[in-house]
């Protein structure tokens, strides 16, 4: 680990076991925190924003102790922070490092922006085809509307 990276890591204290969500677009840091429902979390949470990053210029980090992400949470993060990496920490060491990746289809986690869509009027889970990943472009599996950018509303 070079000195520069170590300095960034030290800006936010280490956790013994849990998940570190790194390389989050700085502006999306608190959106990612909301996805993780940090307000309900009882374990230690460390959030850093506007940290120096060679890759992104400025990045955010979220560290949550004793927690693994669900597939739905990882998919949501991939939608709003496509550059993010997930580090699984055990006994202060990174044991697994994965880049978030959007699946070809995404279910439940996104709300269709079309008020006339059946998913906004009947108890039906949403699903979307991801037609492009950077930036994400989604097509509703029911009403077929295309959503991108600010149209994408997380549930």
């Amino acid at each position: 680990m070079d000195k520069r990276k170590k300095q960034v890591e030290l800006n936010v204290s280490a956790i013994r076991n849990g998940t570190v969500i790194d390389h989050v677009d700085s502006k999306a840091t608190f959106q990612v925190a909301r996805i993780m429902q940090v307000e309900k979390e009882k374990n230690k949470i460390l959030i850093g924003q506007n940290l120096e990053s060679r890759q992104l210029g400025s990045k955010g980090i979220i560290k949550i102790e004793n927690r693994r992400l669900t597939a739905d949470e990882a998919n949501k993060i991939a939608l709003i922070a496509p550059e993010a990496t997930l580090n699984i920490i055990e006994d202060f060491a990174v044991v697994e490092k994965v880049k978030v990746k959007l699946p070809n289809q995404i279910s439940r986690v996104v709300k269709c922006y079309n008020p006339r869509c059946v998913t906004n009027n009947e108890p039906v889970d949403t699903y979307f085809e991801i037609t492009d990943s950077k930036p994400p472009i989604l097509r509703c599996g029911y009403c077929e509307r295309v959503m991108k950018g600010s149209d994408v509303i997380l549930k």
Partner: peptide
């Protein structure tokens, strides 16, 4: 036929 979009797929 239904006024809501996506009903036929459902």
């Amino acid at each position: 036929r239904h006024p809501l979009e996506g009903v036929a797929r459902l």
